[in-house]
Design a protein around this nucleic acid. Structure first.
Length: 739
DNA sequence: TAACAACGCTTTTTT
DNA sequence: AGCGTTGTTA
């Protein structure tokens, strides 16, 4: 019985789709059609009545992937679309489960999900209340430790029980208080969504059992990037039927900093007996050259399962490796290349620039704005993180739940009405003493100070408004309610009075918010899901080039891909090397592998000899940089090095002018050419003279001790005791004072 | 209390 | 450069 949905699949793909029972591990290389396999398998299961759609649990890495799958399933299963599978990310699925049993986790219904900023604020408040110095215990650090514990499924009790790492005693205490605080605020953070599920399953086996019985089949995408708690979560559900099918690629594991464990993939066969392992090794996405480049780079990693990816595709164009004088010229050149594509009427959506760090967008954006190339930034600053959006949501949160102190603090003085820090402190004290919310504290405060001062008046109006809107929320839909709130709170008026371009764009954003609220059917649904919305999920409309981090690009593919900033320190990132040493470099290399394999047809890799680190406008803070080691790992025969630049990896002579001989002059380039000359004069690069001397003994993070044998500006040649001669830039070296 | 200036720190990747 | 925190002033 060959079903039509199976046509076009190769044999291993068919195996993966048709294997009915038991645990399956699919090791799928980049571009080998794993998403297609997963979707087809899902359809196969439902079409052949192996189970009801609602008995499938399908975990994807992003909401976008989940939605795409949902659409495909709906299209093919017209007759059964009332009965949908459980499809989403670990977080969104956990959210769905938790909404069904909030009380089992000590939560009230309609709890809110905090984003990272809210989380930091609470930690800060806790530290202040405990009189702990935030300089010694930076909230960000505490947050990351708490997150690490949660990724390992450790509750505060678990952490306190463990007597090891007593260095963290204070952090453990904060973790415990923080969790209490979340409970009173009826909030959860991202980690809690999954952790609370696990806690419920441990505490109330009956609940777990209903899910175990219900989920007859489990499908998991991007399995290499699951962390410990996510794996525990999966194992709970899979325990009864053992019909779990995980798809992953160890070479694409790029989230170990978030607790992802490649060992999940390596141990799968140990946990699930009789695992059927299927390898998908035919790549359908990229040209031969691109594939070869990717394979060559990743082969430098020692810690991998190893696989042979092959392809029937043509070798295609060579990969361009471009060297530029600085980041600005890199951006100019990329935009010129894109203009060529515009002339060729290539759809801009098929072009993407993948960067290592978010700040790299700045120079690119400057350029694209200047010459008017439409672009979208995916990742980066989230729409819902903007102040005006958070303000509006805070109003709604407080209306929805008067005990939401976080929301209260955010908007009690918005627009400004004389309620400053000192009044807020008094309210906080009342709340703390009586163990009540700020909202209730506010009522008491008004009661106590009957005299009508300006502050009392403001607070009275504020409370009345909130209570009134609460009433309205039962008559109006969530969109009309929001309009009323923005209007009656004076928020719209405040922005209109400002008359700045920023205020205008804020008003625009609020309009956009109202539009996007239509995707939710009521206020609760909106508030319950808003935090899990990520920017990769929105804004794919229109025709624009894409700018995003390599991390966000996972699972996506584009005809043309630009990879700027391949410089030591930026990519591989210095922090990754510092924190994780060789393991860090290997993860960065996997990131390079992911980035390269996003490209279907054309690939442009580039690096600059000088880069601005912080946005200083002076001439001094340009930092010279060396090309990434990953560039040396590209096979010579598939790359084309930029215009007559005598680039050799063992050479310092990268300082050629590269912009002079562009063979294409875009309109934007023409427009800029006159002003550019002035700019270049103004931004003359002045190098810091190095503080080192030939013969001096130095230390390097990675290579250890060595002696300087040559100096060229601040590029030094150092003879390391253990590693021999290396070229190093002086900022990575420290003087060795031991002798 | 609000507005403004000065300062210092920042930027790895995200649900 | 852009942000948050701290200090100063009206």
């Amino acid at each position: 019985m060959t079903e039509d949905y199976l046509t076009g699949l190769n044999n291993p793909q068919k195996d993966a789709v048709l294997a009915d029972k038991g645990p399956i591990l699919i090791l799928a290389g980049a571009g080998s059609g794993k998403t297609k396999v997963l979707t087809t398998r899902l359809i196969h299961l439902i079409k052949n009545n192996k189970c009801l759609a609602s008995q499938v649990l399908c975990v994807t890495f992003t909401n976008k992937a989940a939605n795409e799958m949902k659409e495909r399933v709906m299209r093919l299963l017209v007759e059964k679309k009332d009965n949908l599978p459980w499809l989403g990310t670990f977080h969104s699925l956990s959210n769905k489960i938790l909404r069904r049993h909030p009380e089992a986790a000590g939560l009230k219904p309609n709890f809110t999900i905090l984003d990272t900023l809210d989380q930091l604020k609470i930690i800060k408040n806790v530290l202040e209340a405990e009189k702990i110095d935030i300089k010694k215990f930076p909230p960000k650090l505490i947050a990351s430790l708490i997150d690490k514990w949660k990724n390992k499924a450790l509750t505060p009790e678990d952490v306190l029980k463990k007597n090891e790492d007593s260095n963290y005693d204070i952090t453990k205490k904060i973790y415990s208080i923080y969790q209490e605080r979340l409970k009173t605020l009826n909030c959860v953070d991202f980690g809690d969504l999954i952790l609370h599920c696990i806690t419920i399953f441990k505490k109330i086996p009956e609940i777990l059992e209903t899910y175990q019985n219900s989920f007859k089949y489990i499908l998991v995408d991007e399995y290499q990037d699951t962390n410990e708690i996510q794996n525990i979560w999966l194992n709970y559900f899979a325990k009864k039927y053992q019909n779990i099918c995980c798809v992953g690629d160890d070479d694409q594991s790029i989230y170990s900093w978030r607790g992802a464990e490649i060992k999940n993939i390596l141990n799968f066969e140990k946990i699930y007996k009789n695992t059927k392992t299927i390898r998908l090794e035919q790549n359908y996405r990229s040209t031969q050259n691109i594939l070869e480049a990717a394979s060559s780079v990743i082969s430098n990693n020692k810690n991998r399962l190893g696989k042979k990816l092959w392809s029937d595709n043509k070798s295609g164009e060579l990969i361009y490796v471009n060297c530029y004088k600085n980041g600005f010229e890199e951006a100019v050149s990329i935009s010129d290349e894109i203009e060529k594509n515009i002339l060729k009427k290539i759809n801009l959506n098929n072009i993407s620039i993948l960067i290592r760090a978010a700040y790299q967008t700045r120079e690119l954006e400057d350029r694209f704005v200047k010459i008017n190339i439409p672009y979208r930034i995916i990742g980066g600053y989230k729409f819902y993180d903007r102040a005006e959006i958070k303000d509006t949501i805070s109003f709604l949160r407080l209306i929805n739940f008067h005990g939401d102190d976080l929301a209260f603090e955010r908007i009690v003085n918005v627009p400004k009405k004389g309620i400053g820090d000192s009044s807020l402190k008094e309210l906080r004290n009342i709340a703390l003493e009586d163990k009540i919310s700020l909202f209730e504290a506010c009522e008491i405060y008004i009661e106590k100070n009957k005299s009508s001062s300006k502050i009392i008046n403001s607070l009275t109006i504020f409370l009345k408004n909130i209570i009134n809107w609460k009433k309205l929320s039962k008559q109006l839909d969530h969109i009309d309610l929001t309009k009323r709130v923005l209007d009656e709170s004076g928020y719209t008026q405040m922005l209109m009075n400002e008359k700045t371009p920023e205020a205008d764009s804020k008003l625009e954003n609020l309009k956009e918010l109202l539009v996007s609220m239509r995707n939710f059917s009521n206020l609760n649904e909106f508030l319950e899901n808003i935090t899990l919305q990520t920017s990769i999920d929105e804004d794919w409309k229109g025709e624009k080039i894409n700018i995003m981090t390599m991390h966000s690009a996972k699972g996506l593919e584009f005809d043309v891909v630009f990879l700027p900033g391949w410089e030591e320190g930026l990519f591989p990132h210095q922090k990754s090397i510092d924190e994780s040493g060789n393991a860090g470099i290997e993860e960065e290399r996997r990131l390079a592998y992911v980035a390269i394999t996003r490209a279907k047809k054309r690939l442009f890799i580039s690096f600059a000899n000088n880069r601005k680190i912080f946005g200083t406008s002076n001439d001094v803070d340009w930092f010279p940089s060396l090309p990434s080691r990953f560039i040396d790992e590209l096979p010579q025969e598939v790359i084309k090095i930029n215009n007559n630049t005598n680039y050799k990896s063992d050479d310092f002579e990268f300082n050629q002018e590269t912009t002079e001989n562009f063979n294409f002059r875009s309109p934007g380039w023409e427009r800029l050419i006159s002003s550019k000359k002035n700019m270049l004069v103004k931004k003359k690069i002045t190098y810091n003279n190095t503080k080192f001397l030939v013969g001096e003994s130095v230390n390097h993070e990675e290579y250890g001790e060595g002696k300087i044998i040559h100096i060229d500006s601040n590029k030094l040649i150092v003879n390391f005791k253990k590693f021999g001669e290396k070229k190093i830039i002086d900022k990575f070296l420290r003087k060795n004072n031991d002798n």
